[in-house]
Amino acid sequence: MSKLKNVVDERLKLRKTEKEKMAERRALMTKEQLAYVKRKDAIEKIWPFFRFLILFGLCFVILYPLIFMISCAFREQVDMNDPTVMWIPRHLTLDVIKETAQAIELDKTLWNTVKLNIGCSLIQVVTTSITGYGFARFKFKGKNIFFGIVILMILVPPQVILLPQYDQFMSLKLINTAWTMYLPAMTANGLRAGLMIFIFIQFFKGLPKELEDAAYLDGCGPFKTFVTIMVPNALSSFLTVFLFSVVWYWNDYYVCNSFFNTNKTLALMIKNISTVLKGALFNDASLQVSTRELVVWTQAACLISIAPMLIMYVFLQKHFTEGIERSGLVG
């Protein structure tokens, strides 16, 4: 404690002397320089206020829909037509959430989504990391051509190849099964696989080569080296890519919409939410109901579908942001 106090005291002393120094320096300054220093001080005093305004406003813009979602999901429908109710619902209820959960068959859908999501992401992280390592650390003929294919995978939107893929899966009788998602993931060709391979290439390039050379000299084969030396060193990067992959699979409705005939995942449920809700609430999916009347249930469904991602984000936020910096995407 006393040590700490000493340090603090010393710091304070230093600061004081700095202040004195500033005063001395000011005495020697010309008028122009003084004006410049004054202007700078003024800006430094005003800027935090403006910064707060800007950030507060923009944060509000981002959080507003989420607050709205939460506010709607826990109120009765009557409150929607009550102009005095803005944020805090007059009739607090969990019924809407329950009804929505029933309508989208939450237990089944959620389990399906999680299975598909975690499974595909895990598999794809493993396969893309192996591919990325191959590109980053080995020289072989035709590497540039192969790398070109990776870049093409990033650039070509999935819409281009979905139809022939559908055809392929059709001939294998795999349509409407989870294999349509698993098979591409197993061969490092799933959702945004190109980008993931690219991130891993950049990341492995950034690791020092001495690590592996030592292992090779000790008689370790390349694959064993990869598993025992590189993977443990790259865990944080693996986690980041995995998290992003989970988010991408969670949010994807386009690809699974083409391969599944039924609303098997949460994203598909949300995509067709008004039809689903009409079917469940009014027993008639083709009924014309205005979106306004469905607001509470729609918002509840949205809340349910993003809640797992939000929770994950709150707890693992650091890995989302720091990983990008470390993965070598930058610099």
């Binding site: 396969t127 893309t128 192996i130 591919t131 390592y133 191959g134 590109f135 650390r137 080995f138 020289k139 072989f140 590497k143 192969f146 294919i149 995978m153 591409p184 197993m186 061969t187 490092a188 060709n189 391979i197 390349p222 694959f223 990869f226």
Partner: peptide, 12 residues
């Protein structure tokens, strides 16, 4: 190297 990217290439 081919071994590492082989699986991906077949898939691609």
């Amino acid at each position: 190297g081919y071994g590492f990217i082989g699986l991906w290439f077949i898939g691609a």
